[in-house]
């Protein structure tokens, strides 16, 4: 891993690694509220079937997961648990924030007990808007994340640099052939 850390990996090897990583995402389902049901529909139902995208929604623990989908309202009581489980995930790790509540508080923007956005406690890679987003929207978010992983500088990621959040309805990244902008 020393080569990866220092960013000295040969380019063909990097692309190969990234291709492999993007199509074998083990996703930890953090279902919190309404969005959890839509996430379940995306992951568990025969109509949406997330496994065809190379995403495996069945890790037994966060220690085996590459990606966590925070779906639903994050409350102040729940926030420490989210932080703790996020820290248990091995690097490199990715976060999808699903739904308005996890993005910014959503309909509870003025509530006394809701954390206004999960990005206050953990870094988020992709925001999926909606209340709740349709399962298709979550799939779109996962595809965007896969594109980001494919174009990623692994060294920077390992060192925890160069993460810029993306939005599913971000028109700009869609114009550039759907490839999100890679920082660094």
């Amino acid at each position: 891993m020393g080569l990866v850390d220092r960013g000295r990996l040969p380019k063909p090897l990097t692309s190969l690694f990234n291709l492999g990583r993007s199509y074998s995402l083990w996703v930890y389902q953090w279902g919190l509220a309404c969005c959890a049901i839509e996430m379940g529909a995306a992951f568990g139902s025969p109509r949406y079937d997330v496994m065809r995208l190379g995403v495996i929604p069945l890790p037994a623990s966060p220690r085996q997961a590459d990606l966590v989908v925070i779906s639903g309202t994050v409350t102040d009581k729940m926030a420490p648990a989210i932080k703790r489980l996020y820290e248990q995930m091995p690097e490199p790790k990715y976060v999808i924030s699903m739904g308005s509540c996890a993005n910014c508080g959503g309909p509870y923007w003025d509530s006394y007990s809701v954390t206004k956005g999960v990005d206050q406690i953990i870094p988020v890679d992709v925001y999926v808007p909606g209340c709740p987003p349709r399962p298709e929207a979550l799939l779109e978010g996962i595809v965007l994340l896969q594109q980001r992983i494919k174009n990623e500088d692994m060294g920077a990621r390992w060192r925890g640099e160069g993460t810029k959040p993306m939005n599913v309805v971000d028109g700009e990244s869609a114009e550039k052939g759907g490839v999100p902008v890679v920082v660094n």
Partner: peptide, 26 residues
């Protein structure tokens, strides 16, 4: 309980009636 407490009863006090229906959906 309380990990999903979103303070509904307090929020209804600062919403109008049509806004409350959007809230209680959830």
């Amino acid at each position: 309980a309380g990990y999903m407490h979103r303070g509904y009863e307090k929020l209804t006090e600062v919403r109008t009636y049509p806004q409350v229906t959007a809230l209680v959906n959830r």
